[in-house]
Amino acid sequence: MLFFRNLSRMTYRNIKAVLVDLSGTIHIDDNEIPGSINALKKIRQSNLQIKFVTNTTKESKRLLHARLTKIGFDIKQEEIFTSLTAARKLIDEQKLSPLMLIDDRAKEEFLISDTSSDKLNSVLIGLAPDKFNYTQMNKAFRLLQNGAKLIAIHKARYYKTNDGLNLGPGPFVSALEYSSGCKAEVVGKPQTSFFISAIEDIDIDPSECVMIGDDVRDDVVGAMTAGMNGILVKTGKYRKGDEDYLLTGGNVGDSFAVAVDKILQDQSQT
């Protein structure tokens, strides 16, 4: 039996859009989290709009979309808003030429012609184990010392793979911050700007959105700080006690499917 804990007696009657985290919320690697494909179908049959928001820095939107489609999800590429999308937007807006410490599989998101070293004016950092070597880190550091801007796709401390915990990009961002004395501009979750950018093209107020995710800080608290509603799911990286970090108004559902049922149930009440 799966439960929805309505900690704050919330009703989702006025919700117009659902924002959904991907990894750990609807899938893990190449597997569906049970009930997620069907729950997504139910949202499609309702009047709710949908956006998928993710902090991935490992693969481009196209590769991520291909993976989700293969699992069996009915998702359109333009519905996915990633931290890479947000970084790309920032780079375009500020006309930056970054040194890119990002995974090669993510690079196609940045169809920026390679900049010659003397024109680099910023450092973009994502999860890129191959790039976090002494030479590249020093190159990034020296650019920052000369006034380049530091942009972090996100600042996750670590992530989980089949062989255990591994360092995320966050530690390398804080290393560069410490030595250069500059502060990174973080573009991914849990930044308010990330959540607001994700709904820019659907013209809905943040208060009419609900974010569903397995990371209490990055997904739920982040979205709620941006003025949205938030539901934490007990799948993926969720650990007992994570709900203690929730803000007033935040709720907990056992899974994405349970959260969707609750929202749709509230929607049907007049």
Binding site: F141, Q145, R157, L167, G168, G170, P171, S174, A175, S179
Partner: peptide, 15 residues
């Protein structure tokens, strides 16, 4: 200029 140990100390402290 090259990074000193402090940078990597911070990385481990943070993670």
């Amino acid at each position: 200029l090259v990074l000193d140990v402090g940078a990597y100390m911070k990385a481990l402290e943070y993670s």
